[in-house]
Design a binder for these strands. Structure first.
Length: 113
DNA sequence: GTGGTGACGTACA
DNA sequence: CTGTACGCCACCA
């Protein structure tokens, strides 16, 4: 089987893995970095598989509004929020506070291709 | 092969 | 600000 088959997912995982501690990013940002700016949904799907990958902190990936849209997919109900708060990120009503301060832009932190 | 759905984003009324 | 609509493309039935 060819791993390249999951090239898209692989890339998403790679970026997600590189998210520093205490930082978060958005699906759109990753999607754009991968060249699929209009396919942010696919990033979310990729994260779906990431749920089984410890190396992929899906809880650090939120939507552009800083909303924990994916918390529904996590184990518990507030697991995602707890993980973020555990990293020093304030989360209220499933929304990240000071998002700009915690936002991690792959374009800025990762080498462009 | 077709259709419905989705952890999104943007646009428009 | 809220609600509605569309696009985008991979996955599933």
């Amino acid at each position: 089987m060819k791993s390249e088959n999951k090239n898209f997912f692989r890339k998403v995982y790679e970026v997600a893995e590189q998210i520093p501690y205490g930082r978060v990013t958005s699906y759109g940002a990753i999607a754009k970095y991968l060249g699929a700016a209009r396919s942010a949904r696919m990033v979310g799907w990729a994260m779906n598989g990431a749920g089984s990958m410890e190396s992929v902190p899906a809880h650090r990936v939120v939507n552009k509004a800083g909303l924990l849209t994916g918390k529904h997919h996590f184990d518990g109900t507030n697991l995602m929020q707890q993980l973020l708060e555990s990293e020093g990120i304030k989360v209220v009503e499933n929304q990240i506070q000071n998002l700009e301060k915690h936002f991690w832009d792959p374009f800025k932190e990762l080498p462009l291709k």
